[in-house]
Design a protein around this nucleic acid. Sequence first.
DNA 1: ATGGCTAAGTCGCTTAGA
Length: 259
Amino acid sequence: MKIATFNINGIRARHQALTDWLDEADLDVVVLQEIKTVDETFPRDIIEDRGYNLETFGQKGFNGVAILSKLPLEDVRRGLPGDDEDLQSRWIEATVVGKTAVRVCGLYLPNGNPAPGPKYDYKLAWMERLAARAADLLAAEEPALMAGDYNVIPQPEDAARPDAWVKDALYLPETREAFRRILNLGYTEAFRAKTRAPGHYSFWDYQAGAWDRNDGIRIDHVLLSPQAADLMTDIHIESEVRGREKPSDHVPVVVELDA
DNA sequence: ATGGCTAAGTCGCTTAGA
């Protein structure tokens, strides 16, 4: 089962980039972030015409997540539990049944800048709620994964210029601690299970020629429950996508499970 | 401390992103 996460940065502005990639990548499941539209104006046809089932959790203008799957999507849930007042669309999950059933969660973790401030408080509170959901998923003792734009640079080797990020919400010690707390519940960070090498990024800013200078950061992650980690056969970052026409500022991360 | 770019809504600027 090939599962990808991709922050698309506006689904309506990214028809070509998304469909070109979908047509060549041969995926079973995709979680998308920053669709930046309500469900009513999501371009369902470009997805469904390619044989995907589709579940969206949109929002006007910002945020918004979706799950695409060639297999049926079962028991779909929208919204991260733990705060009924939270109106931002940043979490969707569903079960995909291949050889094995896999609980697939797609997430768009808050950016949190500027820090300190209310946006950073929201980020940390959201990460607390994520930890609670993550613990519940582990308790099920089944293959589960949480994939998406975490807006967390876990380690210095995950940035081309770590010094430039020391006061940023993506890299503050408290952010990285909260991310580690989730990992330490018992999750495997899929990409780091494959390699400790520096220089692998998933985001390059549109500004200042960041792509041309390879001034990137790795903030799109896949976390695996132990039962899912046992099934992982490969993972890679599709950085080449960033160099195409009218790209997202993020690139897809693709994990393969024997499931 | 920055804000060189991009998307979307409020539609000629502002907000948000990271």
